[in-house]
Amino acid sequence: MKLSFMAPVITFAGIAGVMFYALFYLDPKEIPSELLDKKSPVFALEAVPGYGENLSSENLKEGKITLLNVFASWCVACLAEHPTLMELSRQGKIDIYGLNYKDTPDAAAKWLRRNGSPYARTGMDLKGRVGIDFGVYGVPETFIMGPDGTILDKIIGPITEKDLKNRILPRIDGGEG
């Protein structure tokens, strides 16, 4: 049997294997970021035109806990967490910085105009370089940054009610107290 004729079935076996795994061993455990408890990578990015000031790694170590939220105008799941972020920013307890991932300035500005901006600062990561440094898998992701710029925690995917209650709010209240 020639290998070339086997290739399709082998490929499919791989796909089926992962789906099988997904089905039976689905335990939504999150892979911690390699960078957890390490300092933020160094970067400096320009803001989305008209939306907050520029964003750099210096802004992440100004002595308070901050959220670094990775978002993009093409990301559907970002819309799911957007109201949560807007509410959080309205309460004013924590500064939220937006890392605009692999987007265009135009599209990002339009998106923020349409949906509102929860961000105190924004930074355009047009090529996704900074995202790579942060170990971003995809959008959205949210990093909880310590007062000295260490990565305390990372939420993959849209921020849920549970994430907010168990992972974000305790940090804010703990940080203040």
Binding site: M19, A22, P28, K29, E30, C75, Y137, I156, G157
Partner: peptide, 20 residues
């Protein structure tokens, strides 16, 4: 199309692979 499914299955991460 399948990448987010795989990633979600393996790591619980939800991502969008978008137009880019």
């Amino acid at each position: 199309t399948l990448y987010p499914l795989f990633l979600d299955a393996l790591s619980g991460a939800k991502v969008s692979v978008g137009p880019p």
